[in-house]
Simulated assay, not measured.
Amino acid sequence: MRKTLLTLLFLLNLYSSYSQDTIVYFSDAIKENIKPYKKSSNKAYESNDIKEGKKLFDSLVKTKLIGTKFDDFSLKVYKEKNVKINRISKPIFIITYASWCVIPKGEIPALNILAKEHRNDLQFIVVFWDKKNDLKNIAYKFNGNIKVCYANEYYSKDSHIVATIKHTLGFPTSIFIDENKNVVNVKHFENKIKLKTPIKEAITSSYNYFSKDINENLVNSIPKNEGFTTN
């Protein structure tokens, strides 16, 4: 009997070790696959083949990044306490920006509306690749349902997240992570709203664009036998 129990314990430990070893982290997947992707994508864009460039990015996401475990990054939150990814119990929608890039008209109000609507089932995070002082003229535009964060090469502790995301995926980029911190989707987005577009129309257009993306990702982030509701 004792021998049988010892054998079972051994097998359980072996299975546990194997399971842990098979976890692929987002940063490792990026590190292992980014060079061939960049080589091919640079060639495509040099040839002005935008369609091929986008196809290569989508392929990288679908075959190498979706399903990986997102790293437990520590994020500096503007005028709030720092937050670690693993301490957020809900799915997470991350958008990366830079303060020196103009955010399209209507985009921030649309994100504010969506963050309020999804406050119970989704955490919105915007990450600016800037120093804290660079955010003073823009952070206040986001409502309290959105965590406004910043990361920059200037801060030594930001080297990992900057190297993993900014220097590889570029920006603006969105990353959707489920509640277990698995990557559901990564996307380059381009808001094509023109400057002269009326503000209400711009907000509606941005809202529809992000809402469709968010709801599809939320559905994809839960088991098929579970229901899904929005507020």
Rank of each mutant, 00 (worst) to 15 (best):
M1I: 12
R2W: 12
K3R: 12
T4E: 15
L6E: 11
T7E: 15
L11G: 08
L11W: 05
L11A: 09
L14F: 13
L14S: 15
S17G: 09
Y18G: 02
Y18A: 03
Q20L: 11
I23Q: 06
V24W: 02
V24D: 00
V24Y: 03
S27R: 05
I30L: 02
I34E: 06
K35Q: 13
K39L: 13
S41T: 15
K43Y: 13
A44M: 05
S47T: 13
N48T: 14
G53Q: 04
G53S: 11
F57G: 05
S59P: 06
L60W: 03
K64D: 04
G67R: 05
T68N: 05
T68S: 04
K69W: 06
K69M: 09
F73D: 01
V77I: 02
K79M: 09
K79Q: 10
N82G: 15
K84L: 08
K84F: 09
K84R: 07
N86L: 06
R87H: 15
R87D: 15
I88E: 08
I88K: 07
I92K: 05
F93G: 02
F93E: 04
I94E: 04
K105D: 07
E107Y: 01
I108A: 01
P109F: 04
A110M: 00
A110N: 02
N112P: 03
N112R: 01
I113F: 02
I113C: 04
L114I: 10
A115S: 14
K116I: 11
R119D: 12
N120W: 10
Q123L: 07
F124W: 03
I125M: 06
V126T: 10
F128R: 01
D130L: 02
D130G: 05
D130P: 09
D134S: 02
N137F: 08
A139Y: 01
K141D: 10
G144Y: 12
I146E: 00
K147A: 08
V148L: 04
Y150C: 00
A151D: 03
A151V: 07
A151G: 08
S159W: 05
H160C: 07
V162N: 05
I165Q: 03
L169K: 00
G170S: 04
P172W: 02
T173D: 07
D178P: 00
D178I: 07
E179K: 06
V183Y: 00
K187W: 07
N191C: 13
N191M: 12
K192E: 13
L195F: 14
L195I: 14
P198K: 07
I199L: 09
A202N: 06
T204M: 11
Y207E: 03
I214L: 03
I214R: 01
N215V: 12
E216T: 12
V219Q: 15
V219N: 14
V219D: 14
N220G: 10
I222Q: 03
I222E: 04
P223C: 13
K224E: 07
N231P: 15
